[in-house]
């Protein structure tokens, strides 16, 4: 086990190095003129003569061989300098730092209903196997599984914003933003709803929640579908095991058989999925952040990509990959710790 963790930890920088290499070499398809747009406003290009353009390309070292530029960039990354983002008009590292709390907030709030309700539905379906409730839950799951988040997001906006006016898009209302930006409002955690509570501003807390519900609803159905399928099949497998039969034969009440004997063991595969879900949620907010026009990493990355802001794209991908790699390592360790039958190797 220790040897396995050490091996994975040693591989970690190697894989991150590979990720930077892939993404960086892809940006090189762009050619020096496009890359120049990271430094100079592209609208000025037409007014410049070819010689002036060449001079600029020379100045920023864009015609040097790829390797030289790659290691220059990598050196910057190691010093914490990810370059300048044209879309955010600020350093990439700063832009990411400011947006992460919003994405974490969304993911945090979404995880609670997703995992809670997802597991509950999965257990309910398994216990009532082939009865009406089971069929109903499975249909609910398979529709959610086939429903693209951007389609469902548009429907949520249409119903809950346009028609009912309950949950507006955006991050917070204009009046709330004014207060949040004022010096009296202290940012303790940079997570808006928590800061609002710590500042004793219940109105801002409600405002933040109101803006969160639409995206959470959109995310939830999709992930419920996924989680309850896993829970259901894992639960069914456990319910067919000998020790469950023994417990029933001993006369243990059915409620205790399900909740005490079966569910605990059925949760082992669910933990991995739930863990993968936490990571997936962090990376899976791109579409909802765009639809609901929320501040966050996802929308930032989408904007950076569409505007070829390649310094920001490189930085964001590096961030997401780091989260993904470390997260997966934690899940694998957790999985082995929970189930002694698993041998890591």
């Amino acid at each position: 086990m220790t040897a396995y963790i050490i091996r994975r930890l040693l591989l970690l920088p190697l894989i991150l190095f590979g990720v930077t290499l892939i993404i960086f070499s892809f940006t090189q398809i762009l050619g020096p003129e496009k890359l120049l747009s990271a430094y100079v406003n592209p609208n000025v290009f037409d007014k410049l003569s070819n010689e002036e353009l060449d001079k600029l390309i020379e100045k920023y070292g864009l015609n040097e061989p790829m390797w030289t530029r790659y290691f220059k960039w990598l050196g910057g990354v190691l010093r914490g300098d990810l370059g300048w983002s044209v879309t955010a008009k600020q350093p990439v590292a700063q832009a990411i730092k400011e947006r992460i709390p919003y994405t974490i907030e969304l993911a945090l709030y979404a995880i609670i209903p997703v995992i809670g309700v997802g597991i509950w539905l999965g257990v309910a379906a398994a216990v009532n196997r082939d009865k009406f409730l089971d069929h109903f839950i499975r249909i609910f799951a398979i529709i959610g599984w086939s429903l693209p988040d951007f389609v469902f997001g548009l429907i949520v906006l249409m119903i809950f914003y346009s028609a009912l006016g309950w949950f507006p898009p955006g991050t917070m209302s204009a009046w709330a933003e004014e207060i949040v930006k004022s010096p009296e409002f202290k940012r303790f955690t940079h997570i808006l709803s928590i800061d609002a509570l710590l500042n004793g501003r219940l109105d801002i807390f409600w405002d933040a929640l109101r803006h969160l519900i639409g995206p959470i609803l959109t995310i939830s159905w999709l992930w419920w579908a996924y989680l309850l399928r896993i829970t259901r099949s894992s639960m069914l497998e456990v319910l067919g095991k000998e020790y469950v039969r023994t417990a029933r034969a001993k006369g243990v009440p059915e409620k205790d058989v399900i909740h005490k004997h079966a569910r605990k063991n059925a949760m082992i595969p669910v933990v991995t999925v739930a863990g993968a879900m936490v990571i997936g949620l962090l990376a899976g907010t791109v579409i909802v952040e765009v639809i609901f026009n929320r501040i966050g990493m996802g929308r930032f990355t989408a904007q950076a990509a569409t505007q070829l802001d390649y310094a920001a794209v490189l930085g964001s991908v590096l961030f997401y990959s780091t989260v993904l790699i470390i997260g997966n390592l934690i899940i694998d360790i957790l999985y082995a710790a929970l189930d002694p039958r698993i041998r890591l190797g």
């Binding site: 590979g18 892939i22 892809f26 990355t301 990509a305 991908v317």
Partner: peptide, 23 residues
Amino acid sequence: MRITDVFLSIPFLLAAMVLTTIL
């Protein structure tokens, strides 16, 4: 397999998004 790991370490939608714009 390590190359596979590297490719798996970039979220799919993000990777596709970035490469599409670059192309």
